[in-house]
Design a protein around this nucleic acid. Structure first.
Length: 604
DNA sequence: CTAGGGTTAG
């Protein structure tokens, strides 16, 4: 007599089988075993597995099956799992559909289901819809719990309203909901995000005074918001406070700190914390190395990054796509294409398959190098190897072509991308316009536009600054370009770190440099423009010289894009040009709603 | 099971 096959055995096998389709085959085959019947547990494991791996068709058909075999009122957990997995893959509509159908299938959603769907809506920025779900939940008499509150708090923080989030937090006790560290830290993070340091610190203190202390996971999330901005100092202050309460940092904590140190350019410190990890009894992992390597590369230290690549291999860690792509990108951004090639070839030899990121970096590097022919060749080669081109990759090429003055080829490529089902976006248009500026067709109106708006108190986006600066640098109009940098400093359009310099004279010298470096880091300006500007801001003759103004003519026409063409465009091109013109005007309107690295919201 | 943890691209 063979031992009976139990549901828990089937569930275990489903869980540990890596391949979801193989798991499903096994799941189906045991239906024929004598006396075996699937239970809620086995169905749930199988549905979860399929959903986790994005096998949604199979998941849906199994959900139909479970409805026929299991009491429908018991299926909420299954639906929540499906909602979450749809959410993980960005399929928001599908997640909502599952939720909407629940009570049709005799499964009354509880607060957990409402929370699950609200959370996905908030995560993907559908704040109004999330609020509607909340109102419906109240309407149905479902009582919100601490998760509901935290999700709503998050929604307020994401919409840059931390003070509203705080009010909601303070209302929780009166609604019978106890505060916890996650709710607190969500609000605190919201304050930091918007640079309300004082409020954030106060609330953190207040939380500890209530004897509510975050666990390491919650704490890590909080300092991550700080470190992403490069504010390691504040993170350290917070860390010291929780250390006293017996919280121990883990590898995540260190990795977050390394990211922050790189972000603020403290590279030697970042490198040193690698040893710090070990002295805490922890072992650096691939992410630790990748974070460091990526940080070095972003700071134009790809050679050193490559040394760490070898070090991680010596440590017995396997470099992954992330590692290689970071270094390749780093070399390309420095114009060291040969080194990038070398790293790529070594990687391929070790079995690495170049992906979209790799090609983006490489093609971008070649374009910046002026080697548009090889860039196109690599692109076509990648297409031949089955790479699915994306809007990003197209934009890189459009940029490359435009910058070479090959506007017609750029337009041709935009036509091709339309054929490939890729729609041009605002970047695409700006890139072509940028190319036109470079050819001297429209730089003056771009410049006027920028200066005029600043004088009126509107602050254009950093992208716009970058475009105009690039154009001016290419034309060697250094005086105007440097003038813009000084204007940015005067108008406080500067990265946060500038405000940590208290001595005025120090600030005056350092701020322009920081602005230029920040523009480069965020890729708003080219490396060439960076060099021109860097020299320019050190030139005493240019320093403080009054900015030339030339905004006397009618603004109504000053930034209209009117390309001069040597010959009549073919019909399809003309249509495209019209389309692009209207899009550009839309983008001009868009400037009024931009927000900036300084965290200010522009008011119209 | 539902809020909260780390690394790349225009």
């Amino acid at each position: 007599m063979s031992p009976a096959l139990l549901p828990k055995h089937v569930a275990t096998v489903v869980k540990y089988q890596r391949d979801p389709i193989k798991a499903l085959a096994m799941f189906n085959s045991v239906k024929n075993e004598n006396g075996f019947k699937h239970t809620l547990l086995t169905y749930k494991c199988m549905i979860e597995k399929l959903g986790f791996h994005g096998e949604f068709e199979e998941m849906e058909s199994l959900m139909s099956e479970i409805r026929m075999n299991i009491d429908n009122s018991l299926l909420e957990g299954v639906y929540i799992g499906a909602i979450r997995n749809y959410g993980r893959k960005g399929k928001v509509q599908e997640a909502v559909d599952v939720f909407e159908r629940m009570d049709f299938y005799n499964c009354e959603p509880s607060v957990q289901s409402y929370n699950a769907v609200m959370n996905i809506l908030v995560e993907y920025g559908y704040f109004n819809q999330a609020h509607k779900v909340y109102l419906r939940m109240r309407d149905k008499g479902v009582i919100p719990d601490v998760y509901t509150f935290t999700i709503r708090i998050k929604s307020f923080c994401r919409t840059r309203r931390p003070h509203v989030a705080l009010r909601l937090l303070n209302n929780m006790p009166s609604q019978g909901c106890e505060l916890n560290a996650v709710a607190y830290c969500t609000v605190i993070g919201g304050f930091y995000e918007e640079n309300f340091q004082v409020e954030a610190r106060q609330l953190f203190e207040g939380m500890l005074e209530q004897c509510i202390c975050p666990d390491i996971t919650t704490f890590n999330k909080l300092i991550h918001t700080l470190c992403k901005k490069g504010d390691v100092q504040e993170s350290e202050k917070l860390l010291n406070k929780v250390l006293k309460r017996g919280i121990l940092p883990n590898l995540f904590t260190f990795n977050i700190f390394i990211q922050g140190l790189c972000k603020k350019g403290a590279l030697s410190e970042a490198v040193r914390s690698l040893d710090g990890v070990r002295s805490e009894g922890l072992t650096p992992d691939v992410v630790t190395y990748n974070t460091l390597i990526c940080g070095l590369c972003k700071n134009f230290k790809a050679v050193e990054a490559e040394r760490y690549l070898h070090k991680m291999v010596n440590d017995g860690l396997m470099p992954d796509a992330f590692t290689y792509n970071s270094i390749i990108d780093g070399y390309c951004k420095m114009g060291m294409i040969q080194n990038a090639d070398q790293v790529l070839n070594d990687a391929i030899f070790k079995g690495f398959v170049p992906d979209e990121f790799t090609y983006c970096s490489l093609i971008n590097g070649l374009c910046c190098d002026g080697d548009i022919d090889r860039a196109m060749a690599v692109f076509n080669d990648a297409l031949g190897k089955g790479l699915k081109p994306t809007i990003v990759l197209y934009n890189i090429l459009v940029k490359g072509l435009s910058q070479q003055g090959l506007i017609l080829q750029a337009l041709q490529l935009i036509n091709e991308m339309l054929d490939h089902g890729c729609s041009p976006n605002i970047w695409t248009y700006n890139l072509v316009i940028n190319g036109l500026c470079k050819m001297g067709w429209n730089i003056d109106s771009g410049y006027d536009f920028l200066i005029e708006n600043i004088e009126k108190g509107f602050i254009p986006s950093l992208t716009t600054f970058g475009q105009v600066l690039n154009c001016l640098c290419v034309e060697h109009r250094v005086l105007e370009a440097v003038g813009i940098i000084h204007l940015m400093v005067r108008k406080d359009i500067v990265p946060e770190v500038v405000n940590t310099i208290f001595e005025a004279d120090k600030k005056e010298v350092a701020a322009p440099k920081i602005v230029v470096e920040d523009l480069l880091k965020k890729s708003h300006i080219t490396y060439y423009a960076y060099e021109v500007l860097y020299d320019g801001i050190r030139d005493r003759k240019l320093h403080k010289k009054k900015l030339p103004t030339r905004c006397s003519h009618d603004r109504g026409t000053s930034f209209k894009w009117q390309p001069v063409r040597q010959y009549a465009p073919v019909a399809s091109e003309e249509k495209l040009l019209q389309h692009m013109c209207s899009a550009y005007l839309k983008s001009v309107l868009g400037y009024f709603f931009c927000f900036y690295s300084t965290g200010k919201i522009m008011e119209v």
